[in-house]
């Protein structure tokens, strides 16, 4: 099967959805003529023109709010945040308007908008550009939050997110953009296109001894840790990728934990009320009798992102950290 980058997978998803529905527009800073700050939209402006690919001024509250308003009338805007960290200047629009206008109108309105962009640390850009707000947005009913780890998932989830009739916040990762994974050509897929439902987790590696559960780039880190656990410690770890944080596939998580009886949640999010806190609580509530050890969590170190490159590397979860933690309960 062909291999493409995570970036290219997103690009294909956008291209296909621009073709699929005239109401899809892509709006954001540098998405059109510049070809995207991270080249996710490369070539799309040339192909689709000014009407469908729109360069926005640096004005997140304005253009994200504008996209929400347009979605209320049935458009399907895909809004790029150059960094998801910039969501914080559009917070009122995202948290009050996108999430709640349906509820406050008694169900008369819906917002089929996608807000996408990289939400990660690890690139030595300091605290302001390294936020991982998936827990913050997943805390808000009315919003959906997606965080793909591979090119395959990025493509399939993006297409679904654009067709979804609720607001979907799609959190990518700049450190994954250049990584390649197998993604089939549409001609190789039954139904002719790659569609992955929201709310379906994926077992990225089957195992029997411990469940390493993660989302986003932490899935890749967990896969590396699983290799070490197997080769150096004869421990067979299962890696569960949430893919979608809200809606959440509880069943797949619980089935894995019931099989392995041990779990560690790994994320690049901060620890306090992080995604892992939610998952740990759920596991203890629903799989308590299956647990042979406490449910553990690994997160980013609980401080703002450190600039210094070698230090920031150790601020985020890395394979050896996962191995060490896993060994405490295996």
């Amino acid at each position: 099967m062909r291999k493409i980058t995570y970036r290219k997978a997103l690009n294909e998803a956008l291209d296909e959805e621009l073709a699929h529905d005239d109401m899809v527009v892509v709006i954001g800073e540098e998405v059109a003529e510049y070809n995207g700050a991270y080249k996710v939209t490369e070539g799309l402006w040339e192909k689709w023109g000014d009407k469908r690919l729109i360069d926005a001024p640096i004005s997140e509250a304005g253009f994200i709010g504008m996209g929400i308003g347009a979605s209320m009338l049935g458009m399907r805007p895909v809004m790029e945040l150059m960094f998801f960290s910039f969501a914080y200047v559009a917070f009122d629009q995202m948290m009050n308007n996108a999430s709640s206008v349906r509820y406050m109108s008694g169900g008369l309105i819906n917002c089929p908008i996608v807000v996408r962009g990289p939400a990660n640390g690890g690139t030595n850009v300091g605290a302001t550009h390294s936020h991982t707000p998936e827990n913050i947005f997943a805390n808000m009913p009315g919003l959906k939050v997606v965080s793909p780890a591979t090119a395959y998932d990025a493509k399939g989830l993006m297409k679904t997110a654009i067709r979804d009739n609720d607001p979907v916040f799609f959190m990518e990762n700049t450190m994954l953009y250049g990584m390649e994974w197998e993604v089939p050509e549409n001609s190789e897929i039954e139904g002719g296109e790659l569609i992955i439902p929201l709310g379906k987790a994926d077992i990225k590696r089957e195992g029997t001894d411990i469940s390493l559960i993660a989302h986003g780039r932490a899935v890749i880190t967990a896969l590396e840790a699983a290799k070490i656990l197997e080769s150096e410690h004869k421990i067979n770890a299962e890696v569960v990728d949430l893919r979608s944080i809200r809606p959440l596939d509880e069943e797949t998580i619980l089935n894995s934990v019931k099989k392995t009886n041990r779990s560690v949640y790994i994320e690049e999010n901060k620890p306090f009320c992080g995604v892992g806190a939610q998952i740990s609580s759920m596991i203890m509530e629903k799989a308590f009798d299956y647990l042979d050890a406490p449910v553990l969590r690994i997160t980013s170190v609980d401080s703002p992102a450190f600039y210094s490159p070698p230090v920031e590397k150790r601020q985020l979860p890395y394979p050896e950290m996962i191995v060490e933690k896993a060994l405490t309960i295996c």
Partner: peptide, 18 residues
């Protein structure tokens, strides 16, 4: 009236915990 997909009982609305 929180999620359109849930309210309309679609496949998406029935997939995963909302």
């Amino acid at each position: 009236d929180v999620y359109w997909e849930v309210d309309n009982d679609t496949e998406s609305g029935k997939t995963g915990r909302h």
